[in-house]
Structures are given as C-alpha cells and as structure tokens.
Simulated assay, not measured.
Amino acid sequence: MAKKKSISQEDIISAYMDYVLIHNEQPKSVYAFAKDNNMEEQKFYEFFSSFDSLEQSIFKIFFDNAHAVLEKSEDYLTFDARNKLLSFYYTFFEILTANRSYVVHALGDNKSSLKYLKTLAHLKKRFTNYIEHLNIKTIDLKQDQLTKIQNRSLKESAWLQLLVTIKFWTEDTSPSFEKTDIFIEKSVRASFDLIDTTPYKSLVDLGKFLYKEKMHMS
C-alpha cells in the first residue's frame, strides 16, 4: 500500500494520542508508529524529534488553542488582567477536559517530577510569556534589578498556581468538574489580592514617612 503523502502535525498528534490511550504506553519506535499509520518515518521527523518532544507540543497546542479562542472575543480584549487570567483558566481547562483521558495518562503516568515538568516545558514557556504580557500591576520598585526579580517571581508563582490547579483538576471527581471551577475562581482572586499594589504602596509610604521622621528626630 502506498504511503500517505499528505500528513499534518495534527494527524500525527491525533494518531499518537489514540495509540497511547489504547495501548497505555508510547509506541515502541517511530518506525513502528509510522508503519502502523501508513506514513513515511521521515514525515514524523519533519514535525518532532521524538515522542517526548511530541508530548511537549501537545500541551503547547492546548495553550495555543485556548489563547486563540480568547483573542477572538471582543469582551476578553476589554478585560483587566484578573478577568483575562480567569477567562484563560476556564477556556484552557475546557480544552483539557475535552482531552482528559490523554492528559491524565500523560501526567498521571509521570512518577518523576522531572519528567512531569519536562512534559510541560513548552506549556510553561507559553504561559509565563502570557503572564508577562498581561500587564499585572505591581509595585514600582524604581530599580531595574529588583524589578526583574519581581517579574520573575510573578511568572514563577503564576506557573506554580497553574500546576497546582492542573493537579487539583486531575483529582477532581465532582460533576462537570465543578470544584475545579470554584478552585480557579478562588485561587486567581486570592493571588491578585496578594499582589494588589494598594496596600503595599501604603506600607511603602508609611515606611518612607517613618524613615524621614527618624532622620528628622536624630
């Protein structure tokens, strides 16, 4: 039988996800996978270097699909950072839910935290870049090095929050994963309350006042 010539990245990903869900493991080799799907092995390598890189790409594509949906919404474009992030979470987890069997397999099967984080490496790059461009208001530290540390901490804490939410979702047994929706709303609200600049600015102003008063008294 002639090999298929028109093979897209989506075709390969779909075939791979089907395989691991049916066999509960990765294909034995790229050669065997290509043969089973009636395509040239070279076609696989046009898109991916290995099955691990394919798995990383799947989660990146989940993010890209969620982001594309949001960018088409006129309402989303008018939202503040908090509501944009909430919208992202709800949309992203709808996509994860549509692919829940695969996601639970891919992440639940990774006993090693290193392997787990490696699988989500491309997702992390996409998500932390997204966070960086949300323009979340933080304290103006007026010092470049401190600002860089603050921005890096913000992205890492947001990433940790997403990881925690994914874990919560994989273990959620409520109908339609209602508890995950509640968790998302409460955790995002809490995280923005923690970085709300208003109380911090008040503390900074108080600190400056006390410092000036101390200097004046001395």
Rank of each mutant, 00 (worst) to 15 (best):
R100Q: 14
W169P: 03
L206H: 02
S191G: 02
M1T: 14
S202P: 01
K84V: 08
K111I: 15
N110G: 14
A98P: 04
W159F: 09
P175V: 03
K111S: 15
E156P: 03
I12A: 02
V103R: 00
A106I: 05
D140W: 02
T147F: 09
H216A: 00
S218Y: 02
K179I: 02
E178I: 14
S218V: 00
I58K: 05
T97V: 09
L117K: 10
L141R: 08
K4W: 02
K111C: 10
N135Q: 08
N151D: 14
V20Q: 01
Y200K: 15
Y211E: 00
Y130E: 08
K208G: 05
I131K: 03
D109Q: 14
F92P: 02
N135S: 06
T128S: 10
K212F: 00
T119Q: 11
K35I: 11
K60P: 04
F48M: 03
F88I: 01
N24R: 12
H122T: 12
D80T: 03
N65R: 11
D64C: 01
L107C: 09
L96S: 04
P27L: 08
D196C: 09
S187V: 01
T165N: 07
H105M: 14
K111G: 13
I13T: 08
S101A: 12
L117T: 10
K60M: 09
D75A: 15
S87C: 06
T78E: 11
S176K: 15
K186H: 03
A15W: 13
Q26S: 15
N37M: 03
S112F: 07
S202M: 08
I166V: 13
R189T: 13
F92E: 01
T128E: 13
Y31T: 12
Q145G: 12
E41I: 11
T197F: 09
S176P: 08
K208R: 04
K167Q: 13
Y89F: 11
Y89G: 04
K35C: 09
D140M: 00
Q150M: 08
L86G: 07
V104I: 11
A106N: 04
S112R: 11
S218L: 00
K201N: 14
E94T: 15
E55Y: 07
L162P: 00
K124L: 05
L194I: 15
E25W: 01
S29P: 02
L203K: 14
W159A: 00
K115V: 15
V103W: 02
S14Y: 08
K4H: 10
E25H: 12
R126C: 15
D193E: 13
Q42D: 10
K72W: 00
K125R: 14
F51T: 06
